[in-house]
Simulated assay, not measured.
Amino acid sequence: MISCNKKKSGEVKLASAYEFTLYQSDLESVMPKKISKSDSIIFVQNYINHWLQERTLIHFSKSNIDDDELHLDKQIEDYKNSLLIYSYQKKFIEQKLDTLIYDKEIEDYYNAHNQDFQLKDNIVKVAFLKMDKRSKNLKEARKLLKEFNESNKNKISDLAERYADNYFLDNNAWILFDDLLKEIPIQTYNQEEFLRNNTFVELTDSLYTTFVKISGFKTKESVSPLSFEYERIRMIILSKRKQELLKKLEADIFKEAQESGSTHIY
């Protein structure tokens, strides 16, 4: 917000709070263009009220904090310098960072650090079909999903698209078991025990019958599979590249400054 504490000769005063004064020209500089008369009245009222509250807070803040506690000039200078460095580093990274990461690099990182990738939740490989309980295709759906494999994948996909209210058939993908439970109301008090003892589940409520085929699972605190951590590892590698790039940038800039005689110790 505008300070508005300097006297302006001939200016129209709109409001004041302690040592601060809000002038007509200050308001005009922030007034939105192409605003209706009714909206402009509301804007002015809100602006003035906010200005008064803010100026009052500034006055009491200045009155209750000693100058030697503030060090405002130094804080402002430090902030400006930090912002300047950040902006330059951001621009440099955007221009120089190599974002291409090959699968081999991700696999190598995973193999070297796989103990760092312990699961915090249970995960599953699963396929499911949720269908109207009155559907004439329930028997076929049950049989196909129980035998779900690459050879009948197209057939079950066609059935799902035509008759299922909801379905998931990518049983090569790891998903959180908790996310599955959001879609399917499986009642279990011990997830690990349930997963160890069930590979096919059939649930029926007042409207739907749901078939669930669990083709794999990993429990929390076991090592997370690579495919589940793929994107996380990619971001880790990118972050390391950024840090290395910035470290080299600082070293190169400092070396250039020294060699050109631009730095001195007195």
Rank of each mutant, 00 (worst) to 15 (best):
Y208L: 06
Y86I: 09
K143M: 11
N152R: 09
Y109M: 08
K240L: 04
T263R: 00
Q115K: 01
E229T: 04
F43Y: 00
Q95C: 05
S16N: 15
N81W: 03
I85S: 07
I184D: 02
Y163H: 15
A164S: 14
I184F: 02
K136I: 09
D170W: 01
I214R: 05
E161S: 15
L97D: 06
E94H: 05
E202L: 01
N198L: 03
T210Y: 00
H50M: 13
S206E: 00
I42N: 02
N46Q: 09
N190V: 06
I93T: 09
L203W: 01
Q75R: 13
A173V: 14
I76G: 03
F254H: 09
Q258C: 02
S25K: 11
R234V: 04
Y110P: 01
T21K: 00
I265H: 14
S260V: 00
P32F: 14
Y230C: 07
I58T: 11
D39I: 03
M31W: 07
E192S: 08
I237C: 01
L145F: 12
R234A: 02
E183Y: 08
V201E: 01
N154H: 02
D39C: 04
K130L: 01
S262D: 15
D68V: 15
T263E: 07
K220L: 10
Q115V: 01
I214D: 02
I175L: 12
L249N: 05
F117Y: 04
L27D: 08
F92G: 07
D121G: 03
K130D: 00
I237P: 05
F168Y: 14
Y109I: 07
L119A: 09
N166H: 15
P32R: 11
K182S: 10
F228D: 00
L72C: 08
E105G: 09
W174E: 12
G261K: 00
R142C: 11
T263H: 02
A173M: 13
E221Y: 12
I233F: 04
D26V: 12
K255V: 05
S215P: 10
K90E: 14
S222H: 02
